[in-house]
Design a protein around this nucleic acid. Structure first.
Length: 261
DNA sequence: GAAATTTGACCATC
DNA sequence: GATGGTCAAATTTC
């Protein structure tokens, strides 16, 4: 019997293959393909690659844990680190940074828009990194005592590579709405969508004529299809940044009902 | 005018 | 003393 994680890897592998094929077709028919489409295809591929790396990496860690709890942690994938190594050698002031609960993701683009609302509270030139590091915390830190934080830092100039490190978990209502929301994509008529364009920034669940449920979130910089309701699945337009964040906070939009039970 | 960002100062840790 | 993380006043943006 396959675990849900193995099923997820299998599904992602299939999707990755399809996206790869699509890119090949578009490469062959460059006359017709706009840069926008090509970028989109690349983005999809990148998203899949990252997701797979993350899942495979997680599996590896689990397997290592199974084998021996005393063996030292091996260096993880360059794409994602989820180790218990301290992030910095010294200078930490907060309990958050000292926490073992952090997830680090590296990508060619900084992850600014990941579906959560962040407030920048600092920026520092980091001696060891030669690049500035930006500090963000959840916009609901005060309102809802949410302790989620993230740091964004360029770690490589050419080609550009950014590291986004998430600390803690969202305890704000926004995240709870995510986490408690049952997702089942097994039935295309019962799919769920996440939107970022609702004007009043509150979370709503909406049932349209085809029974699709939609979560509205705010993200002014997210470009969406004119009629997002007509998309058959979130993956049609969900940004890679959102996918990264979704992973970072252990929210799986493709989780099925059977996985929940 | 409110909200978000910037930036220098302060503090804890090494 | 050096460094990284956070605070909060100043500044910018909408």
């Amino acid at each position: 019997m396959k675990s849900s994680q193995e099923n997820a890897v299998e599904t992602l592998l299939h999707g990755h293959g399809c996206a790869n094929q699509l890119k090949l077709i578009m490469d062959q028919a460059k006359l017709d393909s706009s840069m926008e489409r090509e970028d989109l295809a690349k983005s999809v591929l990148h998203c899949f690659s990252d997701a797979l790396s993350i899942l495979i990496d997680t599996n590896d860690h689990h397997h290592q844990d199974d084998r021996s709890n005393n063996s030292p942690p091996q260096d993880s994938s360059p794409v994602l680190e989820n180790s218990r190594r301290p992030l910095h050698k010294r200078g930490r002031k907060t309990s958050v940074a000292e926490s073992s609960d952090y997830r680090r993701h590296e990508s060619p683009n900084p992850i600014y828009h990941d579906g959560f609302l962040w407030r920048k509270y600092g920026q520092k030139q980091i001696k060891e990194a030669n690049h500035q590091r930006s500090y963000y915390k959840c916009a609901y830190t005060k309102d809802q005592n949410c302790e989620a934080k993230k740091q964004v830092q360029m770690i490589q100039h050419n080609p550009p590579l950014y590291s986004t490190t998430y600390f803690g978990h969202h305890t704000c209502q926004l995240h709870q709405a995510y986490a408690s929301f049952p997702i089942d994509t097994s039935d295309p008529l019962d799919s769920h969508m996440i939107r970022f364009d609702h004007p009043d920034f509150s979370i709503h669940q909406h049932q349209n004529q085809s029974q699709n449920q939609i979560i509205y979130l705010k993200d002014e910089n997210m470009t969406l299809p004119d009629k997002a309701e007509e998309c058959s699945s979130p993956s049609q337009w969900m940004s890679s940044e959102v996918a990264h964040a979704v992973e970072a906070f252990e929210f799986n939009p493709f989780r099925t009902s059977s996985d929940l039970s």
